[in-house]
């Protein structure tokens, strides 16, 4: 063995988790070469010192601390999912409602609403004038949003994704947590009464989200525009 091979071989032996003394080649060379003997001794000292390092003790209550931490702070991923869901719902709601308001604005003199295209056929044929009269009082700022000078950016999306939700929002009793965005009488829309109870928690959540969104809107500006 040459001296330049000694340290390479030494590392290989250590990689195999063996003591250098157990390797015949290394031992032989070590006997005859004082320089490599020093190299081997240095590695011995290193590992002796490393294994003599005191093993630190982890705190006994680490498990309890971890569980407490998990309980006190919801997962960022979960927070993200909740926030994303809320935003998605709010966005869908806006897409659904804004065209609806526009239609209402266009036919304010009339006394019936017929949903445009798609949506629930039963709903599209049902008139709910009393509900419509409440919309502008509750959401003037949303009416202002619909005054888009560059055409109707919501129409395409609304046709694809918004009509179903718009229909539900129009006809399900109790939508808005009892605050009456729409409060169609159940006898006018029989199917709504059946699904209304099941949808109520969802619609309440949607309304809460909606309220938060509205708080963030520049209401005074929009109201002025309307």
């Amino acid at each position: 063995m040459q001296c330049e091979e000694f340290e390479i071989r030494l590392n290989e032996v250590l990689d195999e988790r063996r003591r250098p003394e157990s390797d015949a080649e290394l031992s032989l060379h070590r006997e005859t070469c004082p320089v490599c003997r020093k190299v081997a001794a240095a590695y011995d000292r290193l590992l002796d010192g490393f294994y003599a390092l005191a093993s630190p003790e982890a705190p006994d209550d680490m498990g309890l601390r971890v569980v407490a931490e998990m309980r006190s702070r919801p997962s960022p991923r979960r927070r993200f999912v909740v926030a994303s869901s809320a935003l998605a719902i709010a966005a869908a709601l806006l897409i659904a409602i804004v065209p609806m308001f526009r239609q209402f604005g266009a036919s304010q003199s009339g006394d019936s609403l017929v949903a445009r295209g798609g949506g629930n056929p039963a709903a599209s044929q049902t008139a709910v004038p009393s509900a419509l009269t409440r919309i502008p009082r509750l959401m003037p700022e949303l009416l202002a949003i619909t005054e888009s000078p560059d055409g109707d950016p919501y129409a395409g999306l609304a046709k694809e994704t918004g009509q179903g939700l718009a229909t539900v929002m129009l006809y399900v009793p109790g939508v808005g947590g009892g605050r009456g965005i729409i409060d169609a009488p159940a006898d006018q829309v029989p199917w709504a009464a059946q699904v209304g109870e099941g949808l109520r928690p969802i619609t309440n959540s949607v309304t809460e989200t909606f309220d938060v969104l509205l708080e963030g809107l520049p209401v005074s500006q929009l109201a002025a525009r309307s």
């Binding site: 093993s55 630190p56 003790e57 982890a58 680490m62 498990g63 309890l64 971890v66 569980v67």
Partner: peptide, 27 residues
């Protein structure tokens, strides 16, 4: 969860302690 942490805390803390060289940070 507590059981899992108790089982591995020595090894995890050992690595953190040697990497960070500071007990509080390692904890």
């Amino acid at each position: 969860m507590v059981e899992l942490v108790d089982f591995y805390r020595g090894q995890v803390f050992g690595l953190c302690y040697r990497m960070l060289r500071h007990r509080q940070d390692a904890e």
